[in-house]
Design a protein around this nucleic acid. Structure first.
Length: 491
RNA sequence: GGUCGGGUGGCCGAGCGGCUAGGCUGAGCUCUGCAAAAGCUCCUACACCGGUUCAAAUCCGGUCCCGACCUCCA
């Protein structure tokens, strides 16, 4: 039973649309996954965290979602054409490894990072190498439809011919002539008929290690066909949501649409969703700019641009504080602000569990509850959601201070709201402070705090302050609350 | 050059015709042996120039900046 009406910004129409699944309550969602020839890029992580939020919310409101996110472990040329070479083979040569060793290494690394960020695994995570025959089959069908042609063992998609009956550049709102202007002239060596034509299947050169037999000889699949083939296989010829980074709009997703139209004669996707880029101090994070850092470097703080390490949950919270269609700028200042805000919210979560109900409520909890849904229904607006949760935190703290009251039913609703939106939807989790589940530390601290409290009772403040200051030097922070003294390790 | 987004208070970041989010920082107050934490209060902003409107950060026109894509990239 779905009782929320969700608005989604569709890249296709460039506006928000009411979300109506093709076959409610079932939803098919495909997200372009990583190419596993190197460590995951943080920008990639942001995209996957954004879709994780979307996936979690759709499930929360009652949909049955099949979430498919591929692993690209084959092919992918370095450049526009078949010069350059295979990314995996190239990296393999560099590291003296088998291509599939590279794939395995970085796939595991990718999964580890996704786990640290607390993202839900997709329902299906298909690999390109596991779907070679599907890709060959699709290529064959495109040739049969007259939109693919073979040149010297490589198969190309005929964009200009396709354009006579379809609007090729519709997703990025570009006219064919404009697109042609942006491309260079074909040289005499070119096998392609048109400048915009792209490869569906690529003939393997002798040095290519990763290769498969096909009707056109030994080769490997082109860059865009895997997503078309695998999304069709697992989600059907038309499915609800297709996502990825904004940089995929102009080429990758445009070509996916063309391939699916040529093969299946359907628009493959109802709602196209694209996440914005990640910048560092205002500049897009990229290897060439030298301003990129790895997820692990972010966690440990071992990078020249980072003043300190930031926990995976602080980073996740930071990302959720920006809407997925806005650029997100990484800076130490912004990260630290988020980290503190995250702590405040999590402290409110803890406080919520020990609050005592009264006869009546001084705040409108049900309004807060529905505002949280409204925020998420409006194109998954997590920043507004978080603002509402902070309003909840304010209420919780006031109740805890005895300045406000809450009824039993409102308390239940508030708990439900907080647990649902913070843990289930935003995918945040309490970070186990290394000390709190350590019995030895707990016992020692209890003893120390007992001694300090005895000193305080005797007004022996020099002793009590000596304990507090001494602990502070070892990064342990003491807080005297009206319910007793608590301690925690400084982050 | 073409296409598409932006320019919001000290910083980050929502909003996108009237009710002027939120976080961080700073100041004051309450509480406290003192701190810390917590609460309350304050700092009221929308690049610039015109226009539409009873009313514009929000719409229209122009100007100046910034970014993305057009070439592998989430």
């Amino acid at each position: 039973m779905i009782n929320q009406e969700i608005q989604i910004f569709n890249t296709r129409s460039r506006k928000k649309e009411k979300f109506t699944p093709l076959n409610s309550p079932f939803i098919g969602m495909y997200v372009c996954g990583p190419t596993v020839y190197d460590d995951v890029h943080l920008g990639n992580c942001r995209t996957f965290m954004s879709f994780d939020l979307i996936y979690r919310y759709l499930i929360y409101v009652g949909y049955k979602v099949r979430y498919v996110r591929n692993i690209t472990d084959a092919g992918h040329l370095e450049g526009d054409r078949d010069e350059g070479g295979d990314k995996f083979a190239k990296k393999a040569k560099l590291e003296q490894l088998e291509p599939m060793e590279i794939v395995q290494k970085y796939t595991l690394g990718f999964h580890e990072v996704m786990r640290l960020f607390n993202t839900q695994p997709p329902s299906i995570e298909p690999t390109a190498t596991g779907h070679i025959s599907e890709q060959i089959e699709m290529t064959k069908q495109i040739i049969e439809s007259g939109l693919g042609y073979v040149a010297n063992g490589t198969v190309y998609f005929d964009v200009e011919k396709y354009s006579t009956t379809n609007y090729y550049g519709s997703l990025s709102n570009r006219k064919l002539e404009e697109l042609l202007e942006g491309t260079r002239e074909l040289g005499g060596q070119d096998e392609k008929k048109g400048r915009l034509d792209f490869a569906l299947w690529i003939k393997a050169k002798p040095e290519h290690i990763m290769r498969w037999p096909s009707p056109w000889g030994w080769g490997f699949p082109g860059w865009h066909i895997e997503c078309s083939a695998m999304s069709t296989k697992y989600l059907g010829t038309t499915f609800d949501i297709h996502g990825g980074g904004m940089d995929l709009i102009a080429t990758h997703h445009t070509n996916e649409i063309a391939q699916s139209q040529a093969c299946n004669h359907f628009e493959p996707v109802k709602y196209w969703m694209h996440t914005n880029m990640l910048t560092v101090n205002g500049v897009r994070m990229s290897k060439s700019a030298g301003n990129g850092f790895l997820p692990m470097e972010l966690f440990t703080g071992k990078h020249k641009l980072l003043e300190k390490g930031y926990s995976p949950m602080a980073v996740r919270f930071f990302m959720m504080q920006t809407h997925y269609r806005s650029t997100l700028d990484f800076s130490n200042e912004a990260l630290q602000a988020s980290e503190k805000g995250f702590d405040r919210l999590m402290n409110a979560v803890k406080t919520l569990e020990k609050i005592k109900p009264s006869d009546k409520s001084t705040s409108d909890i049900s309004s807060l509850h529905s505002k949280c849904f409204e925020a998420m229904n409006d194109d998954f607006n997590s920043p507004v959601l978080i603002a509402n949760l902070f309003e909840g935190a304010r209420i919780i703290n006031s109740i805890n201070d005895g300045k406000e009251t809450i009824s039993i039913s409102d308390l239940d609703l508030l708990k439900k709201t907080f647990r649902g939106f913070i843990f289930d939807i935003l995918g945040l989790q309490v970070e186990k402070s290394s000390a709190s589940n350590d019995d030895l530390a707990n016992n020692l601290m209890n003893l120390i705090l007992e001694i300090r409290n005895e000193a305080k009772t005797k007004k022996d403040f020099s002793t009590s302050d000596k304990i507090r200051d001494g602990l502070a030097k070892t990064k342990i922070i003491i807080k005297d609350t009206k319910y007793g003294t608590t301690w925690e390790k400084e982050k």
